[in-house]
Amino acid sequence: MMLFVAFIFYGQRIQMYIMIREVESRLARLKFIRDEGRKMAISTIKEIGKPQEDPTERVDRFLEYIAIAPESMDPAGVVWKLEHVLDVRDIRFKDEVRLMAPEADEAQLNNLENTLEAALALNIIYKVIRHFYLLGKKTLSLYIIMQLQMVLPLIMREAEAFASALKAFATGQPIGDGAGALVAAKLMHGHEKRRIAQDIVVATVPLEGRTAHVLKSEGPGGNVGKPGDGIRRIIEETEGKIAAIVMVDAALKLEGEKPGDVAEGVGVAIGGPGIDQFKIEESVLKYKIPVNAVIVKEDIGDAVSPMRKEIFDAADTVIQRIKRLILERTKAGDSVIIAGIGNTIGIGQ
């Protein structure tokens, strides 16, 4: 009877303590992952960059970096403002990494930058979760703790994904996000390449009687480049005489779908903050160029961890789809653009 009465009055509090304990144990794991990420970033910098002094302090400073998004009350021109902020951030990151690892070459610098960015993401995840945990504990608010407990399984998945990404970035292994870059690399391999935009290379490849301008970010260092600028430049160079654009990218799958499944559609298949998508949409609209998308499905964990065999094998399926697509949608002698989007870490060309 007493137990029953206790449950009536203290049931919610007991439930809250159980939830707090659960959040606490997950937070401990997050801290472990964050600390391991930091340690791995420091040891990789020491190993590759051979710095004169200990990079720990600089790494710790890097892990606290912030980038403030531009004001969007008047949204006209916000894309260019955002691009500028991200460019400045990118230059700052590269300079920092160069100072931390003076012996690293360009590809290694890109890989180290990616490693540090993954460590930074883990640090932010940990600190945000810790903030809400402490806030919930301080205010004894069931609703803060409950929301945290409900969302934590998804957050943990993301954190685990970044943890696998760290190792991949540190050693330069191809990641799932590079599915698009891999397709482009397979198509352009053995053909002459030229740099067309920042960290973007293009090759002119004969394909099924058409001229394909195949572009991807420059590998094997980890980078995504500016495919939006690359596509815009090719369209300008050809004065808009492009019969079709095919964009290949990795896309998040739904639960129940298999990793490495390939799907087709229309539209600009590209992730990120939206700057490249905006640029491509502007360019294709000017010349009314049809844009086709071919996506390789994978989950968030696969996207940032070493590439799965299923995703690697999907590249050949994608190439078959592209060939069929341009045969059906364009005429012999036409020019097409094939853009392999994604992080090209561990993938040459």
Binding site: G172, Q173, P174, L182, A185, P220, G346, I347, G348
Partner: peptide
């Protein structure tokens, strides 16, 4: 096994 420095098409 993968070794540091390996990349596709190397």
């Amino acid at each position: 096994d993968f070794q540091r420095g390996d990349y596709v098409f190397k």
